[in-house]
């Protein structure tokens, strides 16, 4: 009897984890195929991998936050605009000759406050976050274009060697410090989501908000904190991106909002909230980044990436449904 129980548990356990395993599998297959089939083995050349990791880290840092927020049952469509706005704040303050670390801290505070505004509009204003952040998406883009005059602005931080190496310092030939930041954030958020009581509140809020509230969980506060985490991570990504590109563009981050959602969904996050895991979100981000990279390497028109994302999202939602159904049958 005990044996049967144990086997059942193991069987179920493997089923529950299968969505994560599936995503890892997809990533590995993707990497293998690209390594073999991209002409001239360009995909696995060190400079391509370095490029992919540095862009990928920026993107994935945002996806970690957006995924957490989606598990709590909300969306943030303003990430792209906030990225541009935070970049502008960073470049502007830096050009005034303020110490870059102070500039970075102010930029992070900016991101956090913007996240909090999104959270307050959504929870206290009782507006769907999809709509609320669609509004703030346009608002912050508008402010950014207005304030910058729509022009590119150079911003070279390389004279501050220590500062620059904290954010984009090279570690060996391929790795850069932003990858370490990404891993650090992923581990911290993973622990918070899966091992901390706040994570349990996030899952409960996204899964059944009324149940969470009747168990005296302050679901509004949970959501606001998640929005603030997104804002902080977007601001951090903005800093790394600005330091890496040594320039600001008011168009940076356009279209980012849907890529971020796509990455989280591919990583096994439910669009309805309450389901997802940090490892999956992390891998999902890199799947999206690698697909984008592959399109560039294959010299396919950029528009095709949208079609690829669309197919990926639909495929992963279907996969999610299939797993869900088979799990119900098992029990």
């Amino acid at each position: 009897m005990k044996n049967v129980e144990n086997r059942n548990r193991k069987f179920l356990g493997s089923f529950i984890d299968i969505s994560s395993l599936g995503v890892i599998g997809i990533l590995l297959v993707l990497i293998t195929l690209l390594a073999i089939f991209v002409p001239g083995h360009n995909f696995i050349r060190p400079d391509n991998i370095k490029n992919l990791l540095s862009y990928g880290a920026e993107f994935a840092i945002i996806v970690l936050g957006a995924g957490l927020l989606m598990i709590a049952g909300e969306f943030d469509l303003s990430v792209g605009s906030v990225l541009a706005f935070c970049s502008f704040v960073f470049v502007k303050l830096f050009s005034l000759g303020i110490n870059p670390f102070l500039v970075a801290i102010i930029t992070l505070i900016c991101g956090a406050v913007i996240g909090m505004i999104n959270g307050l509009i959504t929870t206290k204003g009782r507006i769907l976050s999809f709509v609320a952040t669609l509004g703030t998406m346009m608002f912050w883009r508008g402010i950014t274009v207005m304030a910058s005059g729509g022009a590119m602005m150079p911003s070279d931080t390389s004279e501050f060697k220590f500062f620059t190496s904290v954010f984009i310092g090279e570690i060996g030939k391929i790795f850069q410090s932003q990858v370490l930041w990404l891993i650090l954030f992923a581990v911290i958020l993973g622990f918070i989501l899966h091992r901390h009581k706040f994570g349990n509140w996030v899952f409960s809020t996204g899964d059944n908000e009324r149940a969470a509230r009747s168990m005296a969980i302050n679901t509004d506060r949970v959501k606001i904190i998640c929005f603030v985490i997104v804002g902080l991570l977007v601001a951090f990504a903005a800093i790394i991106q600005t330091v890496r590109l040594a320039a600001f563009s008011s168009r940076s981050g356009t279209g980012l909002e849907l890529e971020v959602v796509a990455a989280a969904v591919v990583g096994g996050t439910s669009l309805r909230g309450g389901k997802g895991n940090m490892l999956g979100i992390f891998i999902g981000a890199f799947i999206i980044v690698i697909i984008k990279n592959a399109f560039v390497l294959a010299r396919l028109p950029y528009e095709w990436t949208y079609i690829a994302f669309a197919l990926m999202i639909m495929f992963s939602v279907l996969l999610d449904l299939l797993i869900e159904n088979s799990r119900k049958k098992v029990v």
Binding site: G199, F203, R210, A211, S214, G274
Partner: peptide, 27 residues
């Protein structure tokens, strides 16, 4: 219909909002 979160485990539901924790709030 509001008592439980369907996609969470039994134990996470039973301790929802009243999780037993060690230092720093870890479960």
């Amino acid at each position: 219909d509001q008592a439980l979160a369907p996609d969470l485990s039994i134990s996470r539901n039973i301790f929802m909002g009243r999780e037993p924790v060690v230092a720093l709030g870890f479960l």
